[in-house]
Design a protein around this nucleic acid. Sequence first.
DNA 1: GCATTAACACGTA
DNA 2: TACGTGTTAATGC
Length: 258
Amino acid sequence: MELLATAATAATAATKPARPLYQRARAPSAAELADIPWLHRLDPIERQAATRDLKVVQVAPGELLCRIGRPATFWFGVIDGLLKMSNDAAQVHGKGPRAAQGVPITFTGMPPGGWFGEGTVIKREVYRYNIQALRKSVVAGLGVETFHWLLERSIPFNRFITQQLNERLGQFIAAREIDRLTDADARVARSLAALFHPVLYPGVGTLLRITQQELGYLVGLSRQRVNEALQTLQARGCIRIEYGGVRVTDIDALRRGP
DNA sequence: GCATTAACACGTA
DNA sequence: TACGTGTTAATGC
């Protein structure tokens, strides 16, 4: 657990000097365990071992769960909230100095139900991206040793991981297309559709809790432009704008774009 | 042109 | 009260 240590960003540290993650970690509640999709596929012994090893922690906006270059110690899952996976510097919302190694890129958002980091954990390498909370979130972690133990002995677990890798590969292929889209409305639509992926993010359902500002950070647009795009999508019948979130009404239309 | 930042009013948690 | 939304105005590439 010791290597999970990460610091709050400059911005959050100024307001709330949080203790390190590993000091705040606690055992998951029954409700939290129920929302972990792979847990139910294990046999009783495996499930017991996994449950014993699982930790959950609440993270503040801007806090980092993974830092580029740190060894992978946990496989993470979003219980609640919203994270972003990026290669940018450990700064909140682009303030402060930029990343030393090129243009900051947000790879993807991580809504509830999403599990990530298995690629790095499998290879026992260091993280190649930062994972940062966009809002107050609850994150679960499974230790790397338990992860490998499950990978060695559980076929259902292997199936889950394979499916996970496969679906996310599709996500990143789609993300490359989205990056090339010039139409801002289309980019918002496709990025939004990605966050409603039922396999990768089963915790989302039809209502995604995300502010227009947060969506702007993920897509790379201003809040005002995102608002405009959402209005267009709503008029088209793809979504319904709600306070602090977006509800999909036509996921296929959202994926297709304009 | 199109998107961005800044600013403001207004409504909601 | 603090935050999120919707809108307008000024500015930049």
